[in-house]
């Protein structure tokens, strides 16, 4: 008997998880950021239920600080899939006084997303939020379950997680609680790109190299955009860059790159010596920054 390749096995596992979500929950939603991981999850959902349309809406938590290419891509994808898009606006949360905008040079709306996310989950009564987080991304995420329980305050209790055995996923919960579900938990950054290559998944243009106005801060290249105030002495240069991850503009470091195709991206990742989140300012705030954000309900 032939053994499945690693990509076939990871795909089958993710599709299995997505079908469990459809079977076990009443109001699931896919958290869609426009980044490669949520694009792959959406693609997998399309495959999992075909010829049925994806039986959940997509939810974009919009910080208002987006690369315009991300929004164009999002809207085209939603149209192509015939999916429903819900947008949770961080700006609206700020205007309503639910959160307070950070100030200073390193201000970011990344952390503010948590409140908007939890408010939106509560508003629509979502009981499962499917995300593209992977265990290899970050040390706190290495401890995540596929089906990860959140209490009525949306909080994660990392020390008291349900054991997850074989491929049996327990999605039972009390009213008001919800689950975060991570179908591509076992994928690495390389697996994601190989899969995109194998499946010919269309990607936002900013993942490929392009010329952009950037400036250097703390060893990273950041986009020269009005939402990131520059310190004196930070000068704008025109460089060939691409995104390795896509988040809020204010905390997404850009990578100097010549990669114009998926093949070249894969080769670039194979040769790199820095993790993809090495370019994320939000993780550098403290040693357990991700764990702290996750406990309070972050993605």
């Amino acid at each position: 008997m032939s053994t499945l390749t690693h990509l076939d096995e990871l795909e089958s596992e993710a599709i299995y998880v997505l079908r469990e979500v459809a079977a076990q929950f009443e109001r699931p939603v896919i958290l869609f950021s426009g980044g490669k991981d949520s694009i792959v999850v959406t693609h997998l959902a399309y495959k999992a239920f075909y010829p049925l349309r994806i039986p959940f809406p997509l939810l974009h938590i919009d910080t208002g600080h987006n690369f315009s290419e991300t929004i164009d891509y999002r809207d085209a994808l939603v149209k192509r899939l015939g999916a429903t898009l819900i947008v949770g606006s961080v700006q609206a949360s700020i205007d309503a006084g639910r959160v307070k905008e950070e100030t200073g040079y390193n201000a970011s709306r990344n952390k503010l997303q948590t409140t908007t996310l939890l408010d939106t989950i509560e508003k629509y009564k979502f009981d499962a939020a499917v995300g593209g987080a992977r265990r290899d991304e970050e040390k706190a995420r290495a401890k995540e379950r596929f089906f990860s329980h959140r209490d009525e305050f949306g909080q994660w209790d990392p020390k008291n997680q349900r054991p997850e055995l074989w491929n049996i996923f327990n999605g039972k919960k009390n009213v008001g609680e919800h689950f975060r579900v991570f179908p591509i938990s076992n994928w690495t950054e390389m697996d994601v790109w190989q899969y995109i290559y194998k499946e010919r998944v269309e990607m936002p243009s900013i993942y490929f190299t392009h010329e952009r106005d950037v400036f250097a801060r703390d060893g990273q290249w950041l986009a020269a955009e009005p939402c990131i105030p520059r310190k004196p002495g930070e000068t704008v240069e025109r460089r060939q860059v691409r995104c390795r991850t896509i988040g809020d503009i204010s905390c997404t470091g850009l990578t100097l790159s010549r990669a114009t195709s998926l093949e070249e991206i894969i080769d670039e990742i194979a040769a790199t010596r820095v993790t993809e989140r090495g370019g994320r300012a939000d993780d550098k705030r403290s040693e357990t920054a991700m764990e702290d954000r996750k406990i309070s309900g972050y993605f």
């Binding site: 970050e138 706190a140 290495a142 401890k143 990392p158 020390k159 997680q161 938990s185 076992n186 690495t188």
Partner: peptide, 19 residues
């Protein structure tokens, strides 16, 4: 050992997955 309490206590509490 990725969790805060694991680092503090120098022990492994939960299953961690590595790739």
């Amino acid at each position: 050992d990725g969790l805060r309490s694991e680092r503090e206590q120098g022990i492994t509490i939960d299953v961690a997955y590595r790739y």
